[in-house]
Design a protein around this nucleic acid. Structure first.
Lengths: 123, 123
DNA sequence: CCGGATCCACAGAGATACTG
DNA sequence: CAGTATCTCTGTGGATCCGG
């Protein structure tokens, strides 16, 4: 997964980002471009959710994929994973501090969606 | 690709979005969650680029994938595709009106990336 | 020559069953 | 309940071919 090979002599435009790994936009892209990550973050923006609750909200995502995406988000420190040692098992996911910083961005994405729908209607 | 099957009784929280297809966040997610779409939009934010220029800026993306992503973005009317009937062929891609509306959002993503890098350094 | 279509091989995603 | 394990199959990468 980690391709540390490729360097972008000009990551983009004239802004400062000499290398692949250190370009902010590539980084952001890497963080959220997982197949379901944006939606997971969005659903967690209201507060912590159990695995099964998240699964219910994302019926198109397979259990395996959901686990993968959550692990990835956890590794990138965008969400927290809290395991309760009870039976039946209970695992809660919530936005981390870095994850919460993405909240305004998520709101803007939501607004863009509204705008897009409006434009589509006019067509 | 088009799964029009699944409905989300509660797309998210209490905001208004009864169905899968009409939830703004799902829509936004669908628009940009392609494997390379965000970066393509980002690179096009400076102005139109030829296919080969885009390819140069995204060395990790295969030609086929780049074509796919561009087609998808074009179908979603986020970018324009202009073909010049010359030899050798020349195809230019640029942000559409809807694509340009995403510019502030892209800038915010970039800023988030900077912030994320800063936080990582402190760790 | 450039944009992209086609063919094949393989990693990754879907579906289902199983476990602590 | 929250995952793993296994199998299958789609989608992606890589190379090649093509039309303008």
């Amino acid at each position: 997964m980690n391709k540390e090979k490729s360097f972008h002599s000009k990551c983009h435009k004239s802004k400062s980002c000499a290398k692949y790994e250190t370009c902010p936009m590539f980084l952001f892209h890497k963080l959220v471009s997982g197949k379901w990550k944006l939606l997971i973050l969005w659903y967690l923006s209201d507060g912590c959710l159990r695995f099964s609750e998240l699964k219910k909200k994302l019926p198109d995502v397979t259990q395996k994929m959901l686990t993968n995406q959550l692990r990835s988000l956890e590794n990138d420190r965008l969400i927290n994973r809290k395991v309760y040692a009870v039976i039946p098992p209970k695992v809660e996911y919530s936005l981390s501090e870095m994850g919460e910083k993405m909240l305004p961005l998520l709101e803007e994405m939501y607004k863009y969606g509204i705008d897009y729908l409006k434009e589509s209607d006019n067509t």
